[in-house]
Structures are given as structure tokens and as C-alpha cells.
Design a protein around this nucleic acid. Sequence first.
DNA 1: GTATATGCAAACTGTTTGCAGGTGA
DNA 2: TCACCTGCAAACAGTTTGCATATAC
Lengths: 156, 156
Amino acid sequence: MKHETIRHSFEEFLKTKGLRLTRQRSRIFEKAFACHDHFTAETFLGWLTAEEVSKADRVSRATVYRTLGLLADGGFLELLDTGSGEAHYEHVLGHRHHDHLICTSCGRIEEFVDEKIEELQAEIARSHGFELTSHDLRLMGICKSCRRKAKTNVSA
Amino acid sequence: MKHETIRHSFEEFLKTKGLRLTRQRSRIFEKAFACHDHFTAETFLGWLTAEEVSKADRVSRATVYRTLGLLADGGFLELLDTGSGEAHYEHVLGHRHHDHLICTSCGRIEEFVDEKIEELQAEIARSHGFELTSHDLRLMGICKSCRRKAKTNVSA
DNA sequence: GTATATGCAAACTGTTTGCAGGTGA
DNA sequence: TCACCTGCAAACAGTTTGCATATAC
């Protein structure tokens, strides 16, 4: 999907909901889709603040929280719960659904998809009488580079 | 595993860590293993308070948080992140590892195990160079009884 | 023009922590 | 005895909210 397509769909989304396209919402939208990484609301606020050129660009903490929530509601961002206590977001463009590997040592997040797991999940939900709306599979462990580091420290 | 066995292993755990078996820890331990359900720290505190007979039984909020954390560290309780913002706990006795189906409508939690999914996860971690320490698979959806209720409301 | 958004700061929720006094080994 | 525990209340982090002002439509 091209950027302008999703931008258009964002504007449509606002329109149908009777919401206004403000300078802040536009900036937040653009930034969220320019970033191909996971981020927290606070990190995101930091980026916006850092990139602030004129006073007119200012976006407040409250608006960041409100707008990220809005984008998640609209399906433009996905909420990703890493168990750290903070909400992580990631945009949906290009990414199709995927699950996460989380390094508990450095916080690094990698993505993966496994069709067979997806199928098995659907089957399990069905057999329990659940109508599946979403799922969240997180594999926690130590990533390659942290393992290497740990090894070096021990032998040193 | 019998209750007295796990109780013994809890006492051993405290001993090896140089921790004391206090009235409060004992009460919390007993209650946690008497309850075969998931619970949050606040709910748990509520139970303890409700069951309080004499003043000597009192357990404070801080102690509940501290002790549930302790029990989780010791592997007596498992921390379960439902995405609700609160930590949920469940005891480990009898339960072997399992994953969860969560009803987003009523909060109901069901458990399941799927060996094939477990294997696939291990394989994925391996192929990404991760050393897997744990995982968390949550299937979110609408449970049978909520779906029934929803249907009734629509047709009514 | 006016309903909707924003920024600010204060409120809130779940959880942690410092400290003075209590208690188990 | 004395280190460890507890209860309390205050601190915390992340997030939400009420309100007066500003702004998109």
C-alpha cells in the first residue's frame, strides 16, 4: 500500500467519525508512518519534540496519547504489549500480521510469522467456542548478540 | 503434587533465601494455593481482608504485592499478563504450562495447551538465534456465552 | 460561528519504596 | 539479639481527564 493511499484512508476515517484534521494529528500520523519500528508514547513524544522547528509544531503529551489511541482504534497502529508496563505501537502499513520475539536482556524486538501456528490458533479457539478477534504471541528470550556478550564477559 | 509437598518446598525456598516464614507470608501462600483461579493483587487483597477474623490476621497492600512477587520469583506463582494493565497471577500446582484464551467481553480466561504450537515456537526461536526462556500466547476473542448473549440482545 | 481539539496541570491506577516500629529464628 | 518484615503513607510511572482557550470546518 502506498503512503498516499493510507493517508487518504486516514482522512476518510476522520471524516466518517466527525473528527477534524488538525496540524497535530497530521504530524503524528506522518511520524508514525515514517517510523518502521516499535515505539512507546513517551519515545514518540520525544521524537516530535526533538524535531520541533517552530512553536506551531508543538504537540503535547496529552495529544500524543489521545492520537495514538485514535490511530490504534482506527486500525492504523497496532498496540503491542511487551509486558514492560508501557504500551508499544507499530504501524500497520506493509507489515502484515506478525508475532514477536522479545529479548529480555536488551529489549530488542524481532518479528516473525508462522502460518502453521496461525492455523493451530484458529482451531483451538474454535474448539473452545471462542470467536477469535486477535491474538498475541510473544517469545521471550535472549537474543544472539546478548548471548554473545554474556559469553565474552564470562570468559574474560 | 500434594499440598504439603509444595508447602514444604515453599518453606525450603524461604530458608535457602534467608527469608522468614511470617504469619502474613503463610496466609498469602495458603490463599494463593487454595484458589484455583487467576487473580490480581487487588482482588487477592480483597479476599484476605474479607476473611480477616482477628486483627492479627491483617495483611497490608504492600505485603501482598511484595509476597506475590516473591512467590512468582520462586516459581510458585506464574505472572500472567492479560493486557488489562493489572498483573494476574495463578498458582503453578497441578497446572503444567498452558496458554490462555481471553474473552474481551467478560474477562473470562480459559486455558489450553498445544504441543505442536510449543514445538513450532522453539523452532522459530532457534532459527532467529534466540535462546527461549518463556513465551506467552494469548488468544483474544468472544467466548461462547458472550456470543450467545450478544445474539439474544440483537434479536430482542 | 461553533463544535471539536488542544495544552496544561491535576487526577488516577497499579505498583513500589523509605522509614519507624514489630517479630521470627 | 538483631536482621528481617511489616504497615503506613508517600512516591512513582504511565496514562487519562477537566477545563479554559484555540482552531478547523
